[in-house]
Amino acid sequence: MKKILFILLCSFVSFGFTNERIEPISENESAEITLPVKVETYNFPYENGTITLTIFDNGICEQGTVTGTLSTHCDDDGIADYVWSGTICREHIDALIMQFNASC
C-alpha cells in the first residue's frame, strides 16, 4: 500500500514538474513554450522491497544552486532515517523533501 502511495506521489511530483514550466498561451502575445523537463522514474530493489527514484533530467538550475542538509525522521523516536548534505538546484528542494518523506 505504501509503495503504491509512494509511486502515486512520485507521479504527482513528476506531473507537477512537467507542467509547471509550460507557459500559458495568451492570444495577444507570441506563444512561448518552455519545453517540459524530462522526468523519469524507475524502481530498484532495496532490502526487502523496492525504492522508486524520481530523476529530474534538467542540467540547468534556473533559480541557482543552494547548499543544504536534510534530515528525515520516519518515526517519533528521534532517529534520523535519511540524512543528506550537499548542493542542489533551488527549484528541486520541495521535490527533494517530498521524496525523502515519501520514502519512510
Binding site: F56, Y82, C89
Partner: peptide, 23 residues
C-alpha cells in the same frame, strides 16, 4: 545507515554538485 539511505535517494536528482557525505 541514514547516510546511505539519503545518498541513495539524492542520486536520483540531477544536482549541480554531487551529494557529499559530510553529514
Amino acid at each position: 545507515k541514514a547516510i546511505e539511505n539519503g545518498r541513495m535517494l539524492i542520486e536520483g536528482f540531477d544536482s549541480a554538485d554531487t551529494a557529499e557525505d559530510k553529514y
